[in-house]
Design a protein around this nucleic acid. Structure first.
Lengths: 104, 104
DNA sequence: TCGATGCGTCGGAGATTGTTGACGCGTCGG
DNA sequence: CCGACGCGTCAACAATCTCCGACGCATCGA
């Protein structure tokens, strides 16, 4: 039960769950059908995502729909930012070498 | 031995190692001194970072200096990008809501 | 050459994580 | 009212991570 966002994203199933939810809310069974995993496993992953505040659940009849709540992903983006400057500097130097008469 | 970048970043010690290396290359012992961890543990973490291509090692006498190699962090940034658009939109909508009415 | 230093690596103990099957609870259709 | 459905949760096992002490290898200083 990783409570920190980085730990949550370390699992590929959880990343794919978040990607799927970008297209709109999905029910548990719908999400579980996308993986070759048992439904309890997917349910656990959804619980982890929920505990981390990355999804919100909306009970609807006997289904439970999960909505994307990507606000906490900003923590990752902020951690990444100081490095971004570094690698973009390198990429810029590279593209300067590749085409010198093009400018953006 | 997580080989994927997300798994590597899941560990707080490895994240702090990368942060330290932003200020310039450091030797193993220098890095190990920053943590309340044994040197073998730090050495293992550095091996993980190296296997993921996030650091480069430069042997120098009996020391081994580690350099930051943040290029692969771009994978995380790229994965994050589609969500970034989403959460910035949500934050704007949130401030709009705060202006007119409140409700729990 | 010899001892000390800096480091990686191996084996194993302990903790954490991932997955499954079985079960219970609420909801819908007849 | 009753059986089927969708779902979460629990106990338990398997796999993975993390850490340490012990060891070996290369390098430096004397």
């Amino acid at each position: 039960m990783p409570s920190d966002v980085f730990g949550v994203l370390a699992n590929p199933v959880r990343r794919r769950l978040l990607e799927s939810l970008r297209d709109g809310p999905r029910s548990t069974g719908e999400l579980a059908g996308m993986f070759e995993l048992g439904r309890p496993a997917v349910s656990e992953h959804l619980a982890v995502l929920r505990a981390a505040g990355l999804v919100r659940e909306e009970p609807r009849g006997r289904h439970r729909f999960y909505h994307l709540e990507p606000a906490r992903l900003a923590e990752v983006s902020e951690w990444l930012h100081p490095f971004e400057h570094y690698w973009k500097q390198r990429l810029d130097a590279l593209s300067d070498l590749l085409d010198e008469d093009n400018e953006t």
